[in-house]
Simulated scan of single mutants.
Amino acid sequence: MSLQRNNGMPSSKRLIYSHIAEQGTVSKAELLDRSSMTSSTLTRMLDEMVSEKLILASGFGPSSGGRRPILYETNPEYGYFFGLEISRFSSTLGFYDVRMNPMSLTRWRMDEAMTPERVVEHAAANMKAILNDHKVDPEKVVGVGIGAVGPLDRERGVIMKPRYFSSPGWVDVPICRMIEEKTGFPAELENGANAALMGEQWAMRGSKPQHMLYVHAGVGLRSAMMSYGQIIHGSLDMEGAIGQMIIQTDGPRLNEDGNFGALEAYASVQALERLAQSRAKISGGEWPERLQSSPERIRYELLLQELRQNNSHVEELFRQAASYLGIGLANMINMLHPETIVLGGTLINSYDRFYETAISIARKNVYYYPEYEPVFTKGELREDAVATGAALMVWKKMSI
């Protein structure tokens, strides 16, 4: 088994296989409706795919007057995939069969010790243990999909210069080559937001969403867009550009090379930490005593703890940040017109009111609302979306 490295049109065999995979079980008659093949050609192809153990004849469907039709489904043991998320707070390693069923999910914190070399060693050791636990021959592993914080050079498999990693060394990291040398498995790289969107669309495939926007709100802000079911790649792989959307021309900036009044200065983990630190200094003793911390040591985890204790000061900080994110979302929605908006990241998932406030503000500022009313969701996969989408990327490039 190998990965297809070309970008050509998918073969008829690939199209038939993908339709079976998306539907779960399907009859020959349904496949004929989706293809331009003759009945005899499709029959030969299906017989060939069964003999290759690519698909299984799984039983019979209901009769419509004649013989009951044979039903086909993918063979879950045909191949296996690893999906690796590399993010700022934590990383995730997922192991999947051909049906994208998660057989194992492992997470670890990305602290100061997690250099690129250590991450690769840790991931490789976990891959070996997972294969042993599931008694899977390494020869059946098709590859490793990597979803990472950008900017990236996807063609060369290099993580270029991401911000805000706790560990040093995350500059010009040839992550694909490092994984391949350590594991022997081919690797493919995609930015994490794109991978998450691919994973979520797969999970929602029953409703057939085609035009989707994904926004991740965490340490930074990341986004991805899909049109007609295809990820939109720009000339540069800069998934964090949404954070530089200017929403207040005379506003602050989060970093020296960022825009003044950019969204990331109002609606990110770092923005919340800095604002809380500033408020604590201005208020004198009240905030530091309440938080039992000096202003400089206030971190996101402490703010979440205060949210759980109904600290009204911290609740107001989150409400303001969510309102700004809602404005940024409205700007993107008015420009891109997605049918579905998936929101992820620690700001979305750790505090329900943040999510509710953000989508409420976005809805109020969407042009043509309520005639145009996109669907907002936290997604089906949530924190597993990047790893799943990364594995799915390899699945889509599997030679058939």
Rank of each mutant, 00 (worst) to 15 (best):
W202F: 15
A148K: 03
E200V: 07
Y72W: 11
L343Y: 05
E85G: 08
M9T: 10
M45T: 05
K135Y: 07
P10D: 12
D33G: 11
S293F: 08
L236E: 11
S40D: 15
S87L: 02
P295C: 11
D257V: 05
D137V: 03
I359V: 15
M178P: 10
P252H: 02
Y164C: 10
I70W: 06
E85Q: 15
Q210N: 13
A129Y: 07
G251P: 09
N194V: 03
K281H: 09
D47Y: 10
G344R: 11
L93Y: 03
D33K: 15
P62D: 08
G229F: 12
E190V: 12
I327Y: 13
L392V: 03
R5T: 13
M332H: 11
E289I: 14
M178E: 06
S39G: 08
E85A: 03
F89H: 15
I86L: 09
M160T: 15
G261T: 05
G345H: 08
I86W: 04
A29L: 10
I146R: 06
E112D: 05
G234F: 02
E273G: 13
H19C: 09
E356T: 07
M398N: 06
S278H: 14
D111H: 09
L54R: 06
A124E: 00
P338T: 06
N365Q: 14
D137N: 15
E256M: 08
H19V: 08
V314K: 04
L381E: 00
I246N: 02
I282T: 12
S36N: 13
E373Q: 14
M245V: 13
S90E: 13
Y367M: 13
P151D: 04
E73Q: 15
R154Y: 01
E256H: 12
I16A: 12
D172V: 04
K396S: 11
K364S: 14
E289A: 15
V269G: 08
E316C: 04
H211C: 13
G251L: 00
R67P: 07
M238G: 10
R297H: 15
L56R: 13
L56W: 05
S87F: 00
P252L: 04
V314L: 01
M1Y: 07
V120E: 02
Q201Y: 06
N310Y: 06
H313C: 03
I146Y: 05
G261R: 01
Q305D: 15
P186C: 09
A196T: 04
N126F: 01
E180I: 03
S166K: 13
G344W: 02
H134M: 09
S323T: 10
L71W: 06
G326W: 00
P116E: 01
